[in-house]
């Protein structure tokens, strides 16, 4: 990976801020885009200055878009820039595709610190390098103070469908095995601990990461035996599992004892009265595979840095009732529903 840029391409004071003029289409905007954005992203950008990207793409492609409004913008383990790249890269990867090109749009609020914008751009650059994707088109807008929340980012991504991939919920059948690539609830808990100004300290870091190196490896090796991929972001794993049962028409059984959760995340969730099954994830994906490749898939995951905490968490049942059932650690059974509203911490 390339080293960080040490020289600042736009020397300025720490207190320099974004103004409406940066979005005016004139000289200030030209400087911001050319001297800052282009300069900082130069090694992850392709383009020739046209109004849009002209690309040659052969075969089937996956195309996805996502907007990023995370608060706070900076959190342990990353910032909104990394999240904006990884989020879209992962959505494309979960289609069984190899992400290639991104669009990148910023909506900046007047008064936002330029220094912070640079940190976000660094995040974008680093994430693009890790994911192996190129930014090919973009946009920058500035809104009046009070009309935005510092910074919003939208990214869209295109990737070529892996030649061996056959991802689809219709291919999910009874007996298929569910694997989770990493620990649950890490990202959501890291952000929540910071956002809520909680009085206890943790060292929980967001696990935001581009997951395509691992999904590509699985597809290379196991091809169409990888039947379904999805990253359980907002709404948590519970919501993703409920989406899957609704789409495939079969029930799911998961083992609570098998769910990988970091001890600190588990403790933080206990204190806040939150269920890790409903907390947002970033660097984790769910894979449904044919039973005969489950052990190999697990090994492939665990031998990869992105999947070292991977686990087999359950199976598709032959119950035609589309319910997610969880076998609790003590042997009881309960239904896991989709998240309704947002999780609110308990009183006592």
């Amino acid at each position: 990976m390339n080293p960080f840029l040490n020289n600042c391409p736009l020397p300025g004071r720490q207190t320099d801020i974004i103004t409406l003029e940066h979005g005016s289409g004139g000289l200030m905007m030209h400087r911001l885009v050319k001297n800052l954005v282009f300069e900082m992203l130069q090694d992850v950008m392709t383009g020739n200055g046209h109004d849009g990207a002209m690309l040659q793409v052969e075969g089937n492609i996956a195309f996805s878009t996502d907007s990023f409004v995370v608060k706070p913008l900076f959190f342990p383990g990353g910032n909104i820039g990394e999240l904006a790249v990884n989020g879209t890269v992962n959505d494309v990867a979960m289609c069984g595709a190899v992400p290639q090109y991104l669009s990148l749009s910023f909506i900046l609020e007047e008064g936002f610190l330029l220094e912070q914008f640079k940190q976000v751009l660094l995040g974008v650059r680093n994430a693009c390098l890790k994911a192996g994707v190129q930014v090919v088109t973009g946009d920058t807008k500035v809104v009046e103070h009070g009309k935005g929340d510092e910074l919003y980012i939208n990214t869209s991504g295109i990737g070529k469908i892996h030649p061996k991939a056959a991802i689809g919920s219709a291919r999910v059948k009874p007996g298929n095995v569910l694997l989770l690539s990493g620990q649950l609830a890490t990202h959501g808990t890291a952000v929540m601990c910071l956002r809520e100004g909680l009085a206890f300290e943790t060292t929980i870091q967001s696990d935001t990461a581009a997951l395509n190196p691992l999904t590509t490896l699985l597809l290379d090796r196991l091809g169409s035996d990888i039947r379904f991929l999805r990253d359980p972001t907002r709404g948590g794993l519970a919501t993703t599992l409920n989406e899957l049962v609704a789409e495939c028409g079969w029930g799911i059984e998961i083992e609570q004892a098998a769910l990988p959760v970091h001890a600190q995340v588990e403790a933080a969730c206990e204190l806040l009265g939150l269920d890790p099954l409903y907390v947002a994830n970033e660097g984790v994906f769910l894979a449904v595979v044919s039973p005969h490749v489950a052990a190999i898939a697990l090994q492939l995951m665990q031998n990869h840095p992105l999947g070292k905490y991977a686990a087999i968490i359950g199976r598709i049942s032959d119950e035609a009732e589309p319910l997610v059932l969880l076998r609790s650690k003590i042997g009881g059974t309960r239904v896991v529903h989709m998240l309704t509203g947002s999780q609110l911490p308990r009183i006592c």
Binding site: I330, G332, T333, R334, I347, C348
Partner: peptide
């Protein structure tokens, strides 16, 4: 009791009824 599936595990002679201890 409900989240851990305990009510299902209890012998049928026991009926658990739920009290008023929800401040909200």
């Amino acid at each position: 009791l409900v989240k851990n599936g305990i009510i299902d595990l209890l012998p049928p002679q026991i009926t658990m009824v739920h009290g008023p201890g929800c401040p909200v």
